Amino acid sequence: MDPRDLKRILDALIAADVREFGLKTGEYELNVKRGPDGAPVVYGVPAPVQAPVSAPVSAPVAAPVPTPVSVPTANAEASAVPAAAASGTPVKAPIVGTFYAASSPEMPPFVKVGDRVEVGQVLCIIEAMKLMNEIESETAGTVKQILVKNAEPVEYGQTLFVIE
């Protein structure tokens, strides 16, 4: 796993106050559990490799013991986002990923505060697992708030926009 990907995962987990997280692929297994001081403790264990069926039976091999690694938490004030307003319809993230306000860095954002939106209009893109997912408005109205900055990680259920 690329260290930058691991940092992005950890930052997203910290921002969403996730206490425990697990990820398993064919190459590795990652388990993150927050310690008592709030800092995540990461346990990385290589995925077990199956021995060939024709291999002779030998003495059992002990599984690797995960080694905890403390990771400093992000500055909570730096990543603070204003809370959603009481009035209006929140547009929530349907998936975990990275929020993008435009289709590319050179393009203008899909919507800005004060823009009128219609049902089905693309509001943003959330990148998850290298897939770009267009997030469409489920209600017509005016964009009152945009609660996420471009290229920030977002959590499932996090409010992205408020439409009134």
Rank of each mutant, 00 (worst) to 15 (best):
D2N: 15
D2T: 10
P3M: 07
D5V: 12
R8N: 12
L10F: 06
I14L: 14
I14F: 11
A15F: 01
A16L: 02
D17M: 05
D17S: 12
R19G: 10
L23G: 04
K24V: 15
K24N: 11
T25H: 05
G26I: 09
E27H: 11
Y28R: 13
E29C: 07
N31K: 14
V32T: 07
G35T: 08
P36S: 14
G38D: 11
G38Q: 12
V41Y: 07
G44D: 04
V45L: 14
V45D: 02
A47M: 05
P48W: 01
V49P: 01
Q50T: 12
Q50C: 06
Q50H: 11
V53R: 11
V53S: 08
S54L: 14
A55P: 00
A55S: 12
A55T: 13
P56R: 09
V57H: 03
V57L: 13
P60I: 08
A63N: 10
A63W: 12
P64D: 08
V65M: 12
V65A: 13
V65Q: 14
V65S: 11
V65L: 15
V65D: 10
T67V: 15
T67D: 07
P68V: 11
V69L: 13
S70Y: 12
A74N: 11
A76E: 12
S79L: 15
S79K: 10
A83F: 02
A84N: 07
A84W: 04
A85H: 10
G88A: 07
G88I: 04
P90Y: 00
P94E: 03
V96S: 10
V96H: 03
G97T: 02
F99E: 02
F99M: 00
Y100A: 03
Y100I: 03
A101P: 03
A101Q: 11
A102Q: 05
S104Q: 09
P105S: 02
E106I: 04
M107W: 02
P108A: 08
F110L: 00
V111H: 01
K112G: 11
K112P: 00
G114Y: 04
G114M: 01
D115S: 06
E118S: 15
E118C: 01
E118N: 12
G120C: 09
G120K: 06
G120S: 02
Q121S: 09
Q121V: 05
I125K: 00
I126P: 03
A128W: 00
M132H: 04
E134P: 08
I135M: 00
E136C: 07
E136N: 06
S137T: 05
T139L: 02
T139A: 07
A140G: 13
A140N: 04
G141D: 10
G141H: 08
V143C: 05
K144T: 14
Q145F: 00
Q145G: 01
I146K: 04
N150Y: 02
N150H: 00
A151N: 12
E152V: 06
P153K: 00
E155M: 06
E155D: 15
Y156I: 06
G157V: 06
Q158E: 11
T159L: 02
I163S: 03
I163V: 15
E164W: 05
